[in-house]
Design a protein around this nucleic acid. Structure first.
Lengths: 225, 225
DNA sequence: CGCATAGTTGAACTCTCTCAACAGCCGTGG
DNA sequence: CCACGGCTGTTGAGAGAGTTCAACTATGCG
């Protein structure tokens, strides 16, 4: 089985995340490039592949017929998507920026579990990590105020990016659809935070956290601006 | 490893769900009984076990200091909980009714993966099923109206229970905290549905779906009562 | 029977949404 | 280099869905 495989090219993933060594699994991966704005998978497609992102950002979302959209998550380098128990995608995925990723044939990868049980353990851990994230977001969507949502969002991004300045790959609309708000509310609260000197907005795709402590308090609901 | 194990007693799980044969895995399980209202795990506890429910219903939730609560899911017979990527529980679990469940030592179970790769595949699938469910709920919490939420909830229950009459093990407060609403809103919409002859409420713990078709339409947002 | 708990109903309020106008940025073409 | 149009984001005013607070009713248990 491990013989009839396509070798992926040159991309190597950071060691940090659970999917760190997926690419090495039997050399199953194929490198794929997608332009900004392109659709990668659509709700209802059969699931033939798992994907690991090398560079760029994608949004994973569910849509309702009438146009409403809920972004499930944004994924960046080292993140993986396509994990699901179903036989067809329950969500759509689009590239926000230009994206490079590695594609793994689902069937083959799952077959490898029989040979390398560690892969099964690893996939399990990855799914669990996603699960924890999804459930944390459920608390946000179900019970937090708009201010709490945006504060949580910014802190989450800061954690992932660890720069002084956060780069927002996504639009205000994307943020709104991720937080279960409207674009206007997101905009208003950005402004409110800026006026309260909690953040700075040097340009529309950058945020600087000026007072993370207060933002934390805000995110937990023990404060209002 | 598979030798030093406690055998669980007599409970046998339906064959249907992904965790169908967990109990058989090396006979690792121990049967546990918990009374209604009892807490099974608390947010922050170390994760030592996975649990599979034999009978009864539990609620899994996250809480905020100020008392707000988001119920992540209700689990019944054959459902499993405790799956997570972290080393401590990110949620609390309480018994709603009297509950019988089987407890598996996490470490040992994960160790078995090395010997039985199928277990790894199975845990992966279970986690993926939970993941899909959590993400579906994210759409509900982020983008659906109160009516849509309650309609979706009732239809989901009906699917799981497949009787003509739905038994609500949980209180109105539990439903509210699951749907990201208040108890008053839930109550009002129950009444509204009843007046519109979409459901009947013979007693406070039972719901009869009178017009599933309309409820489906409502759940999808193509209708209002 | 009486109390405690759970659920329902009403009225007022509020947070977020909706609708609408405006401002800023960017690429294109004159 | 600036004018223009298109797109994204901001701001304001008004409306509405759901919450809050409070009173009331029903249910179950000693």
């Amino acid at each position: 089985m491990a013989t009839s495989l396509i070798l992926h090219q040159d991309h190597r993933i950071d060691i940090e995340k659970p999917c760190e060594n997926l690419p090495e699994q039997a050399g199953l991966g194929v490198t794929i490039k997608v332009g900004a704005g392109q659709t990668i998978v659509i709700e209802g497609d059969p699931i033939d592949h798992y994907f690991v992102i090398v560079s760029g950002t994608v949004r994973l979302y569910k849509a309702v017929v009438d146009g409403r959209r809920q972004i499930i998550d944004f994924f960046g380098p080292t993140d993986c998507f396509g994990l699901t128990g179903l036989d067809e995608h329950a969500y759509s995925v689009e590239a926000i920026t230009d994206v490079v990723m590695i594609r793994y044939p689902r069937q083959r990868l799952e077959a490898v579990i029989g040979v390398k049980p560690d892969l099964g353990r690893q996939l399990f851990r990855m799914a669990c990590t996603e699960l924890d994230q999804a459930r944390r977001q459920m608390l946000l969507l179900g019970r937090k105020s708009a201010e709490e949502r945006l504060a949580s969002f910014l802190l989450g991004l800061a954690e992932r990016q660890s720069h002084g300045c956060i780069e927002l790959a996504m639009s205000r609309q994307d943020i709104a659809d991720y937080l279960g708000l409207t674009i206007e509310t997101v905009s208003r609260i950005f402004t409110r935070f800026k006026r309260a000197h909690l953040i700075d907005l040097p340009d529309r795709h950058s945020v600087v956290l000026m007072d993370s402590e207060q933002l934390e308090a805000l995110a937990e609901g023990s404060l209002t601006v």
